[in-house]
């Protein structure tokens, strides 16, 4: 079975305005659910996790009439995203389209992850929302935006040590690592002055994203920077091609992600084609992002929460696991349903 179930694709496309007539509007059909794990077959750990609902003493919040904050801050409060989202998977897309995506994301206050440098003419404000993969040979004077280093081991860090010392403190540094849980690596990352970590399932690793993320969140909470738990001074970002929907982003938030990098999801959602009109691409991305933001707000409201970053991120108590082995629940820090 494809991870892109028909209802998931159709929902994304309805949000983006590819299908239906209510672009940007979360479709609400009825109460109840056909979702995994109880109806559809669960495919990932995420599918076994459910969100706690608001109840009598803790009412739900109607995000259409009352404020709910989806904004998240990255880099110790210096970069503000309007929603916990970063667009990635831009490799192989033509430069004109990349610019369109960057611009749409900037308007919507959403981050972008790029593997190749953006056009040098880009305004510094726009550049500041782009997480750019650093090339070791790259001259660092070109801009001041966040730089992403691919780090798999402590040895990798040692190799780029000199570069980091040269630029540290003046740059926003991001470590992009595979799904591994290495206390020592995190300790080095914190010590070297990185301000953010992307845990990227595309880089492999020996753990599922959910576990690696949750472990990273807890590891960074035990490490300190000037006696303050490091996690609260650093950003944690989850990346995977299999992040399918707002609900995945919401649950990954609960496991510790300040934001998620989505790639296939947006391409499928806007029905991306290399020959598509830039204006159409731009509009569909906007619609999709507005729609996903509204979905996240609805999920927050249903849990009686009004701030994503302070109340959802890492807040495992708001989630429960169905049909997950006990040791998995322990590693995630999520209680089994009923507890």
């Amino acid at each position: 079975m494809s991870i892109w179930r028909r209802d998931i694709v159709s929902n994304l496309r309805a949000l983006a305005g590819v299908e239906g007539k209510t672009a940007g509007e979360p479709p609400i059909a009825s109460m109840g659910t056909t979702n995994p794990p109880l109806i559809e077959k669960p495919q990932f750990i995420l599918d076994h996790i459910v969100s706690d609902g608001a109840q009598v003493t803790r009412p739900s919040i109607d995000p259409y009439r009352e404020p709910t904050e989806t904004e998240v801050y990255l880099f110790d409060g210096e970069v503000r995203l309007l929603m916990p989202l970063i667009i990635g998977g831009l490799c192989g897309i033509n430069p004109q389209h990349i610019l369109v995506v960057i611009q749409a994301c900037f308007r919507m206050g959403v981050g972008v992850h790029l593997e190749q440098p953006p056009p040098p003419t880009l305004h510094p404000d726009v550049r500041s929302m782009i997480l750019l993969d650093a090339q070791l040979s790259m001259p660092f004077s070109i801009d001041r935006g966040p730089l992403v280093y691919h780090v798999e081991s402590v040895e990798d860090l040692a190799k780029i040590k000199d570069i980091l010392e040269g630029i540290g403190g003046r740059r926003k540094l991001v470590a992009r690592i595979p799904c591994i849980s290495s206390q020592q690596l995190y300790s080095e990352i914190v010590g070297r002055g990185f301000q953010a970590v992307i845990i990227d399932e595309e880089l492999g690793g020996d753990e599922p994203l959910e576990v690696a993320l949750s472990q990273a969140d807890h590891t960074l909470k035990r490490l300190t920077i000037n006696n303050h738990p490091a996690r609260y001074l650093m950003s944690l970002i989850a990346a995977s091609r299999r992040i399918r929907s707002s609900s995945d982003i919401f649950k990954l938030g609960g496991l510790g992600a300040d934001a998620c990098v989505i790639s296939d999801a947006w391409r499928i959602g806007v029905d991306y084609r290399s020959e598509m009109e830039p204006s159409l691409l731009s509009e569909r991305i906007e619609n999709l992002l507005i729609g996903m933001q509204r979905e996240i707000k609805l999920l927050m409201g249903a849990a009686g929460v009004s701030s994503f970053q302070s109340s959802i991120v890492g807040s495992r108590e708001l989630f429960r696991a169905i049909d997950l082995p006990q040791n998995m629940c322990m590693r995630l820090g999520v209680k089994p349903a009923g507890e």
Partner: peptide, 15 residues
């Protein structure tokens, strides 16, 4: 009351 940020607050206190 019944604070919905309880999980987050506990995470901070543990840390």
């Amino acid at each position: 009351g019944d604070i919905s940020s309880f999980g987050s607050n506990m995470e901070l206190l543990w840390s």
